[in-house]
Nucleic acid binder design. Structure first.
Ligand SMILES: [Mn+2]
Ligand SMILES: [Mn+2]
Ligand SMILES: [Zn+2]
Ligand SMILES: [Zn+2]
Lengths: 140, 140
DNA sequence: TATATTGTTGCAACTAAGATGCAAAAGTAA
DNA sequence: TTACTTTTGCATCTTAGTTGCAACAATATA
């Protein structure tokens, strides 16, 4: 499917109006395999206000279009959600993230089972986030 | 051992001069079981310049006194290192962190083995960070 | 296809986080 | 006590993120 059409489809499905900034931002996510920071996007789309970008990322996250990819750095990064995610629930509890030491890109890794970590004495575990680091496919 | 003496000992061991700000900051780490953010410390020690705090945290980290505790939030938190850590190497690769959903405190968890995560196809894994969340001992 | 309605954008203005240069002050060793 | 070196605190700057608001754009519906 053409990338434009796919963007429109996603925005419509999540009840977001189709606007120029949203289309270009979403296009960035669809055309990059790695998670993107606010800054990454700002550098790629020059004709967009940074406040709009903040707000777009926030509403994308709220509507289940993107999710924060925890990668151990201080700069938040965002990545596309699975199509099953919605305003009400994100459904990728069990995927992990990989940060490349060389290119510094962060990737969502689907299809690797998250092991159950034995709960430390006295703690009640509800969730597990795993961040791997090392060399990505390109940098190996 | 008196807490003052312990602070002095740690600073001397790591080749850091004993100064008033360093003593009070280190005292905070020794007297709290949870990881502390810049802000946590600033609120507790009122007579210290925030720039000095930034620089102290940085040199503590460089000298192996504290380490960054990855906890999935955007605010960096720091926790005491094991005594085996040094300027040249941190030796707590294999401990994990727990963030409490209720009190928002982050704890280092020693003594829970970090499982080997199967490496995703094409990636070369060098390290694993695990962050658990749920309820801590106090909040359970 | 024009209009009403509502959501979105971009700007200004603000707050918070963090870094750097530098002179004065403090710690250490002789 | 002095000489040497590190550390501190201040001023200043940069970057990150938030909020209020008027103008504007997207959609619905007549
Ligand atoms: Mn992800
Ligand atoms: Mn730790
Ligand atoms: Zn890479
Ligand atoms: Zn708690």
């Amino acid at each position: 499917m053409a990338i434009q059409l796919e963007c429109e489809k996603i925005l419509k499905e999540r009840g977001l109006r189709i606007t120029k900034p949203r289309m270009s931002i979403l296009e960035q996510f669809l055309s990059h395999p790695n998670a993107l920071s606010h800054n990454d996007i700002e550098e790629k789309i020059l004709d967009i206000d940074r406040i709009t970008l903040y707000r777009t990322l926030k509403s994308f996250e709220e509507k289940g279009v993107i999710h924060k990819a925890i990668d151990g750095t201080d700069k938040p990064k965002y990545a596309l959600c699975e199509s099953s995610c919605s305003e009400h629930a994100h459904h990728h509890d069990s995927h992990l993230h990989f940060r490349c030491d060389d290119c510094n890109h962060t990737f969502c890794i689907e299809g690797v089972a998250i092991p159950a970590i034995p709960a430390p004495e006295g703690y009640h575990v509800k969730g597990t986030d795993i961040v791997l680091n090392g060399l990505c496919k390109n940098c190996s």
